[in-house]
Write a protein that binds this DNA or RNA. Structure first.
Lengths: 125, 125
DNA sequence: GCTTGACTTGGAGTGAACTCCAATGTTTAT
DNA sequence: ATAAACATTGGAGTTCACTCCAAGTCAAGC
């Protein structure tokens, strides 16, 4: 799979994929004899995983460290687990913050409803 | 209330508060005769609101626009409502993304448990 | 075999959101 | 009344995460 195809498949750009590889956010990708990246199944797995984690806001630095540990083999299992656990806990906190904000926005919107002419609005046809 | 006191109260820095005011993320704060900011109750309300929204990732540009609309009076009620509704919907999406990621992290962690010596770990004493 | 388009690298540039600094003015405590 | 601590401004610097570019290489179609 070429870089363009992978980029299309995951909604990233080739530049982003090269960047991710450069900083170790995904392991090095194999090349054709002429030096062109040839993405295999498990490269795609990594990309999908990283994309998901990035979407949730995990820092690239932390993810790069995770990838580094994975590449060091089984000796790093507990370090990896620790790293993921930390990120998990931060994520839970951030979700809670966002849910609190959501609650506030909903209250504010309800409040606005009282002052806005109750008729058709843009996303409730 | 001085800028330092407000900063302490909300876990921000004076620099951030000045920055927020400069870019219109909070309405202009009243001054003492000598030009020093004197935060009143409703300045603090704004700061608390903005802090909550920023914590959830709403862009400063959008929040500044919201503040601008608020300061223009009742004519902007429906625009404000529209703005908040959009941000609310994006927030819901982001929360969903993060919950999906959380689910994956939990699965991964469970998986790690199978390979890690089940003994005391750092945060489950 | 030559054009067209995709790929390569290294490095520079961008945008968002702060964060820091210097120079200067003000308040407070001794 | 003077030092220390805190305030002001304008503007420069930082961090994060990309994103773009130039100069060159490679592959596919005609």
């Amino acid at each position: 799979m070429t870089i363009a195809a992978v980029a299309r498949q995951y909604g990233l750009t080739p530049d982003t994929l090269r960047y991710y590889e450069r900083i170790g956010l995904i392991p090095p990708v194999g090349r054709t004899p002429s030096g062109i990246r040839n993405y295999r199944e498990d490269d795609c797995q990594w990309i999908e995983f990283i994309k998901c984690m990035r979407l949730a806001g995990l820092p690239v630095e932390v993810l790069a460290e995770y990838v580094r540990l994975c590449r060091l083999g089984d000796d790093t299992l507990s370090q990896r687990k620790q790293l993921l656990k930390e990120q998990r806990n931060k994520l839970v906190e951030r979700i809670a913050d966002m849910q609190e904000t959501l609650r506030r926005l909903d209250i504010k919107l309800e409040h606005y409803d009282q002052f806005t002419i109750p008729g058709r609005s843009d996303d409730t046809p």
